[in-house]
Amino acid sequence: MLKSTELVFAYDRKRNFVFPDIYADASAPLLVLGPSGCGKTTLLHLLGGLRKAKKGEILIAGTNITKLSTRALDKFRGEHIGIVFQQSHFIAALSMIENLALAAKLSGAKVGQQQIFDILDRLQLSHRAKAKPNALSQGEKQRAAIARAILHQPKLLLADEPTASLDDANCKAVFELLSERAKEIKAALVIVTHDARLKALVEQHILIDHPSNSQ
């Protein structure tokens, strides 16, 4: 469950981003739309606890993360938030299965080897378990990134342009994967994108068209 109110972010004194209030829960995904440079990614970083907001509140599963200390925020993020980025990056030195095991360990959640295998299996990646990230295709990487984001069963699943680099077929597949898995683990799903193809697939939209200057 995610709820943000009166969120303001300042890169510097002159440029303030004021964001519309956001509400999302496990029942349906939320699409945050807008052109490049409108602050979509900034919003995602705020929601994910990667940046500090200047004003406002973000409630995730009952915790106001804007009030958390840096260390507590790191811990909270690891435990309760899963993020899928536009470019999926992995630890290059580790195999896919080791990458997932490391992610599980860092999140602090108790995830067994069997669970990791199960998820890889359901995302049709079990044959790449021992492969290094470089050996994977773009689509495989994106699926693996999703696997990594949902492994520890977060309360909030954030996705930043998850489909931008994919073709139509993969785009649909990845979206379905995200929404299905989110529903399965009862996580609120927020997708930030400018990908028009997703509009047709998601009911709830929020549009960020132009950054407001509050000063």
Binding site: G48, L50, R71, D74, K75, R77, G78, E79, I83, H89, F90, I91, L102, A103, L106, S107, G108, R148
Partner: peptide
Amino acid sequence: LMRVMGAS
């Protein structure tokens, strides 16, 4: 990325 995943 490791920070995102909860590393301090």
